[in-house]
Design a protein around this nucleic acid. Structure first.
Lengths: 235, 235
DNA sequence: CTGCTACTTTGAGCAAACGCAAAGAGAATC
DNA sequence: GATTCTCTTTGCGTTTGCTCAAAGTAGCAG
């Protein structure tokens, strides 16, 4: 097995404030693995044996309901932690993680979590900061789901995606991983049909360009306008 | 100013695993305050000067949108932490907290947070566990909002409320603080009209009894059935 | 007791979005 | 190059739940 270089993780938020020897020690117990597209990194409700850092690729975090419906909780970009059930005092994963493109991840045995958190206080702080910001994110999402209607939610969703994973192209900003109407529907609590209708409508207005598993936002600012109140603002 | 007795907080989850001298030290810097019904403990977006533990009463946590809509995030019961913006690395409160009955809270200056977390590791662990469980709760809520329809959501909401704040009475289990149709609507992302219609419907079936700012669940088990799939389960 | 305020109920019409169904288009496989 | 599979589009009927409006009711203040 080849040694992992410290530079892999040195710049990441989770490892901020750690000195070189700590980083090396942490990497000692890490194993790197490749995950091919559509493969699961971990499954909901299974034993939380490991926690991970995504080094390259994109990962979809999905929660399934008992009756088989799915909700896409978030997408993970390189540098982020995932599967940190241990940090929340859980023993099973609350969701599944699927590679949406070929990925590279580092994995640590879950039982090392408490050791790391005490041995490297900054690491503990950093991860809890992550958890905190995810809590904020998801609270915002609840507010959105409670107060906005579908069109606004989908618009917000696209804006968030291009902010997180946008790549500038000739036409505008593209979401740089394959994402279907169904995926967007599962992020926003609607159906793929409604998403499809919205996208074609927006395409006619020149707001977006979209195709199979692919969305480009042509005019982010006009989409933002849609994302805020469309009607009702005429006071 | 009278001294605060250690027994006030000794049993609480947040202070589990702390020895008596630590508890005393922590209480040294606490101040207790009474909050009368309908008064705010802190306001959304204001400087997060303090964090709190609720000793007695009930507190409603509300998030407001820029256009004035409100979403009730959760209710806090005695023993729980609130206003822990610091733990999430935030400097302002992400929501407002309103006393729904007369309350007693302990308050600490926010800047003590990091000191406590490092000086009393169990305290840090405990609070992060709290944050973790709130993350789980709210993720479940997102899934609910995305996949269930209003009737199920309201049923789930009532079940959660009686679990957290239920008091056994002759008629059934009552939510032991004043809660309006509007409040329930703001928890479930619907309107007070729809909640009212649902409750009267359920009352006719003998599932609940309700009145002004008051709801009693007569048959929790039948309500649970409603909360899961009503139709569509006939496979 | 009376009037006021806040909360609740109920009706009627309407719009948003879903469910169902079928056809069309892109990509991958053989 | 034909076939298959998956993803997407689009039409239509239906439903859910919202909006608007108005009346009813309980508690509170004077």
């Amino acid at each position: 097995m080849h040694r992992l270089d410290r530079s892999l993780i040195a710049g990441l938020p989770a490892f901020q404030g750690l000195d070189d020897s700590s980083l090396d020690a942490i990497l000692q117990s890490a194993s790197s693995l490749r995950v091919t597209k559509d493969q699961a990194i971990f499954d909901q409700d299974s034993d939380a044996h490991s926690f991970f850092v995504l080094l390259d690729g994109r990962v979809q975090v999905v929660k399934s309901t008992p009756d088989g419906q799915q909700v896409v909780v978030r997408y993970i970009v390189p540098g982020e932690l995932l599967g940190i059930a241990q940090a929340l005092g859980r023993t099973t994963y609350p969701a599944s993680a699927i590679a949406v493109v070929d990925c590279v991840v580092l994995a640590w045995p879950g039982k090392l979590w408490p050791e790391f958190a005490t041995a490297y206080p900054s690491f503990g702080m950093n991860t809890y900061r992550t958890v905190g910001s995810r809590l904020s994110d998801i609270q915002a999402q609840v507010v959105e789901m409670a107060t906005e209607q579908v069109e606004q939610r989908v618009a917000h969703c696209l804006l968030r995606l291009i902010k997180q994973s946008g790549k500038q192209t000739n036409d505008g900003i593209t979401i740089d991983f394959p994402i279907s109407r169904q995926d967007i529907a599962e992020m926003t609590g609607t159906t793929l049909h409604t998403v499809s209708r919205l996208l074609t409508g927006w395409e006619e207005k020149g707001l977006v360009k979209s195709g199979r598993q692919q969305v480009t936002v042509v005019e982010p600012s006009r989409l933002s306008v849609l994302a805020e109140g469309t009607a009702r603002d005429n006071i």
